[in-house]
């Protein structure tokens, strides 16, 4: 719950800033021109999403949020924000992805370390421009004063919360799209109503930043609140949806595999049970099926989650170490399966 606490503190801080703005000359507002223009701003501060970058203090119109079940990225802490231009709001679309007005932005900062030791690694932004979404990665400098556009991505040596020394990969602009893509267009992945808390959705409606709380909001399990006695299936399916399904779905980057790991997929063969590999190569690891019920060690899906070897490891992008917690949940799911 550490993260939730931090978010709450952040939200309070944001509120404080908003109050402060009323009586003194406040910081510059978010640059709608930078979001809507055609270029790629060279610095994160060009957008003015934050009043204080290092502290990740959001500007007016920038709303922090969290996901019930988050995408795992080498254990990095993630600070997530949605920016809505003045006079606009989000529109709910059932339990699915919220609809964003043109001019909106989604900002996600990856950080490692706690408290005063926290270091910002990178900030990824998704900009909703008139002709569609654009994804850009920004890399924080050593002094933590600025994040600069890293079109070609990069690598950072760091130690994960699990204590592993890794070469952390910042994705290049195209790699952003390889996850954020459906039918060839860039789209957001995270902010689906089912993966946002009912509380947050309600608060957004009260602020006028969302049209309504949709049915099916907040239905994905809260990952950090799981207990060993919880049923494995919802946790595992939520985990696979959030960590894998952006590629493994029709129209996604891995559509040719035929594997569809979306939460709503009800056909067991489609989500891997007794499904043979297609183009897995050595990723198959001498196993015959994506998921062999009762036999986690003979299931390709778990084998690939549990590897860091390029060509075997899944997801292909976004991690250099193994998510042992995620692996444990999926292992339990397969083991309990009849």
């Amino acid at each position: 719950m550490r993260l939730a606490g931090a978010l709450l503190a952040l939200a309070c801080a944001a509120l404080g800033m908003g109050l402060a703005r009323a009586d003194v000359t406040g910081p510059p507002p978010v640059s709608d021109a930078a979001i809507l223009g055609e270029g790629f701003p060279a610095k994160l501060s060009d957008f003015a999403f934050f009043t204080q970058g290092r502290a990740q203090m959001p500007s007016r119109g920038v709303h922090p949020y969290a996901l019930n079940t988050p995408l795992w990225s080498d254990g990095a802490d993630k600070l997530r924000f949605i920016y809505l231009p003045q006079g606009t709001r989000l529109t709910a679309d059932g339990e699915g992805l919220l609809r964003f007005p043109v001019g909106a932005a989604i900002i996600k900062t990856f950080a490692s370390g706690e408290g005063a030791d926290r270091r910002l690694i990178e900030t990824r932004v998704l900009l909703h421009r008139a002709d569609g979404w654009v994804a850009l990665p920004y890399r924080w400098d050593a002094e933590q004063t600025e994040a600069r556009l890293a079109l070609a991505g990069g690598r950072v040596n760091l130690t994960t919360p699990a204590g592993e020394a890794i070469s952390y990969a910042i994705p290049n602009k195209n790699q952003c799209k390889s996850c954020h893509s459906k039918d060839g267009a860039v789209i957001p992945i995270g902010p689906k109503a089912r993966n946002l808390s009912a509380q947050w959705l309600g608060a957004m409606v009260r602020q006028g930043a969302l049209d309504r709380v949709p049915r099916g909001g907040g239905t994905l399990p809260l990952w950090t609140a799981q207990r060993a006695s919880d049923a494995a299936a919802p946790l595992a399916r939520a985990y696979l949806d959030v960590n894998c399904a952006h590629c493994h779905q029709p129209g996604g980057g891995a559509s040719n595999s035929g594997l569809d790991l979306r939460w709503e997929q009800a056909d067991p063969h489609a989500y891997g049970i007794m499904k043979r590999p297609v183009a897995a190569g050595r990723g198959a690891g001498n196993r015959d099926f994506s998921v062999l019920p009762g036999r986690p060690e003979e299931s390709i899906l778990l084998y690939r989650m549990d590897s860091t070897e390029p060509g075997i490891a899944m997801p292909e992008l976004g991690r250099s170490s193994v998510d042992h917690e995620g692996v444990a949940v999926v292992r339990r799911w397969i083991a309990e399966m009849k």
């Binding site: 990723g283 198959a284 001498n286 196993r287 015959d288």
Partner: peptide, 8 residues
């Protein structure tokens, strides 16, 4: 044949 088993 040196393909990893499991592949067609």
């Amino acid at each position: 044949n040196f393909a990893p088993k499991g592949n067609i």
